Simulated scan of single mutants.
Amino acid sequence: MFELRRLRLLHELALRGTIAEVAAALSYSPSTVSQQLALLERDAGVALLEPDGRRVRLTPRGRMLAEHAARALELDEAARASIADHVGWEPVRLAAMPTAAETIVPAALTLLAERAPGLRVELAELPPEESLFELAARRFDLVIAEQYPGHTRELRDGVVHELLGEDPLRIVLPPDAAPTPLASLRDHAWVMEPAGTAVRQWAVQQCRAAGFEPDVRFEAADLTAHVRLIAAGHAVGMLPDLIWGDEPSGMTLAELPGEPVREVFTAVRTASRADESVELVRTALADAFALHRRIAP
């Protein structure tokens, strides 16, 4: 009989690629991970790992067992969810992108304090690229993420996306500036998120469609830095309405061509959809997003 704990280590290795990354993610030492995988090999009676330079990789049978491990973990999660109402709520591990962590999540926690006062929610603020991967790796139970027009997120087996709503995207200029169309901002310095992110790709494409290559002078993952650079008159940018919370922006906002919106969604593993605690949090997030007052320019 295979130990589920060891099967999870194999599943993690298939996802993350190295024993060091598995150890860091699960707070084990690399030697412990190696020992447990060696014991799993002994239980399986076949080689699951093989040398790959200074690292190891899964053998074909190792990959096959990793696929079975993923299904075993899903069944374990579904079984725990089905009996959760008899043993009390389990903590819900939530990962949210920064704008949601700062606006939607606090409002949802207020709703949950009334609806389910005994429910514990643990929050980590992470970009969607990281949080969606970690959801599949079972570090989190629920994720709030976004996708931009023409840049849909990867659909992973065993993960379900559900739309919370649409968040308008606008040009943001300093407070004393006049609303300016995108095509007229070719000679301005821009602040954007780091290269490689979906939002950066999308923003650059908007500028190219308007006939120019943006002068991206400032890069920052933290959108608060965008706001401060713009407010000080050093740059212009494109930001979602959600960043302003329920307060007026104080900035000059202008419409982008076609008035685009980003989709804000939740993601959960299929196996945890029946978990009452996860569904309570997801519903509170949806209600909080619906109640959120978007500030018009």
Rank of each mutant, 00 (worst) to 15 (best):
94 L>V: 01
51 P>Q: 11
114 E>Y: 06
219 E>F: 12
61 R>W: 02
205 Q>E: 14
128 P>R: 13
248 P>D: 00
128 P>E: 10
76 D>G: 08
164 L>C: 03
115 R>S: 09
178 A>H: 15
112 L>W: 12
192 M>C: 10
93 R>L: 03
160 V>Q: 09
9 L>D: 08
189 A>F: 07
58 L>P: 01
86 H>N: 07
237 G>F: 08
39 L>E: 06
271 A>E: 07
199 V>P: 04
31 S>A: 14
191 V>C: 07
3 E>T: 03
63 R>S: 05
123 L>A: 00
22 V>P: 03
9 L>M: 10
287 D>W: 04
114 E>R: 14
88 G>S: 06
46 V>G: 13
257 P>C: 08
70 A>V: 06
293 R>T: 00
192 M>T: 11
150 G>N: 01
64 M>L: 14
22 V>K: 07
191 V>E: 05
60 P>F: 02
236 V>F: 04
47 A>H: 12
106 P>M: 03
131 S>Q: 10
57 R>W: 06
59 T>V: 02
207 C>A: 09
30 P>M: 05
221 A>D: 11
116 A>F: 05
46 V>R: 15
100 A>C: 09
77 E>R: 14
12 E>Y: 07
291 L>Y: 04
32 T>H: 13
11 H>M: 05
194 P>Y: 12
232 A>G: 14
38 A>K: 12
69 A>C: 00
214 P>D: 10
45 G>Y: 14
217 R>S: 06
237 G>Q: 01
208 R>P: 05
269 R>N: 11
7 L>C: 03
137 A>M: 00
217 R>Q: 12
185 L>S: 11
277 S>A: 13
246 D>G: 12
244 W>P: 00
200 R>L: 08
96 A>P: 08
176 D>H: 07
33 V>R: 04
200 R>D: 03
42 R>T: 07
248 P>K: 00
24 A>M: 09
156 R>F: 15
2 F>W: 13
288 A>L: 00
41 E>C: 02
144 I>W: 09
103 T>S: 09
39 L>C: 03
83 I>P: 04
23 A>C: 05
135 L>M: 08
104 I>M: 02
262 R>N: 14
216 V>Y: 11
226 H>Q: 02
10 L>F: 03
79 A>R: 13
17 G>S: 08
71 R>S: 12
174 P>D: 14
265 F>V: 05
156 R>K: 14
78 A>Q: 02
195 A>I: 14
219 E>V: 04
112 L>C: 06
118 G>S: 08
70 A>L: 05
264 V>D: 10
165 G>D: 14
177 A>V: 04
61 R>C: 01
110 T>H: 07
211 G>T: 07
17 G>I: 01
180 T>Q: 06
90 E>F: 11
